[in-house]
Design a protein around this nucleic acid. Structure first.
Lengths: 170, 170
DNA sequence: TACGATAATGAGTAGAGACTCATTTTTCCA
DNA sequence: TGGAAAAATGAGTCTCTACTCATTATCGTA
């Protein structure tokens, strides 16, 4: 891949994340191009379809989360991850507003990372042993969407997570 | 209001709920008109803007929930309400996907109804007394969005709610 | 540096969907 | 029942945006 192509692809991804994170998935591709400083045709050369672009940034977002989760661990790694996710979602309007996009592989990776955190928390006795990965993922998605929707302030984040943590506690 | 006008307004609301609940808020106004069996102009006579239509059905949905909540009560009324909401959200794609619509009054009513349920549950000793209405609403919204997004099956609904109920328990 | 291959450009196309309005139909009261 | 007000109709307008493609610019190699 030529150097300018690679540079532009990264610029486009960054711009797309910024734009879709702010204005939602219905923002126009032209706005992405403008922010990236490239022509509209360039965006479509790299991502033939708007959905391809959405899928690409969603994949990157999920991969970043999985990576983040992988650096955590220990007795309260899961709790830290919950807090980070909610904090981010409350601040931004993350792009997890469907649009029909799906990225199975990236979701799988994140799932495994979260599974790892859960196992460690259970081993440390911080979390009940009859809790399974699927409901933990479900809670993460829920609380992420909720914070996103409602723009929770710090106090509300803390109190809501307190209930969930109490529910997970041994 | 003339009889035909009232009849059509109700038909339009029903059709809109059906269509937007199924295909999401980006479904076209024409599809609503078609399902309602009226011309497109009639829809715009009753609801001058698509957002007005969305706001109207959101308001009706919230009012219905508030009414539902008001009929519940006792030690586990709150739990029943949680279960119903999640069950509905998992089945349908409820219209709470923003679209910039807001209906403060309807939200207020629902909030009061939920507040009542919380008070009763706390009086009965089913729920901890240091839990406040805002985080209960936040959990409801979260879990509703989560179920909506993920299409939870019955087992996942049960397990996820079990964690939350444990967190709320005295 | 020259040149072929790769990429960028941006005006243009096409289609979808929100909204309008002159005309026709329906309601309902005197 | 007659007729005026209210409502319904639906073809048409207008804007917005995803996507194309002939042309121009840039890159990397020999």
């Amino acid at each position: 891949m030529r150097a300018d192509a690679q540079r532009n692809q990264e610029r486009i991804l960054d711009a797309a994340e910024e734009v879709f994170t702010r204005r939602g998935a219905s923002a126009s591709t032209e706005e992405v191009a403008r922010l990236a400083g490239v022509a509209i045709g360039t965006v479509f050369r790299h991502f033939p379809t708007k959905d391809d672009l959405l899928a690409a940034i969603l994949k990157r977002l999920l991969a970043r989360l999985a990576e983040d989760a992988a650096t955590l661990g220990g007795a309260d790694g899961l709790h830290v991850f919950f807090r980070r996710l909610v904090g981010q979602a409350a601040a931004k309007r993350t792009v997890v507003d469907l649009a029909g996009v799906s990225v199975p592989a990236a979701v799988g990776q994140l799932g495994e990372a979260v599974g790892g955190l859960l196992r460690q928390a259970q081993a440390a006795g911080t979390v009940r042993s009859d809790v399974h990965p699927p409901e933990v993922m479900a809670l993460l998605v829920s609380v992420c969407q909720g914070a996103l929707q409602g723009g929770w302030d710090a106090k509300l984040q803390e109190r809501t997570l307190a209930v969930i943590f109490a529910g997970l506690a041994a």
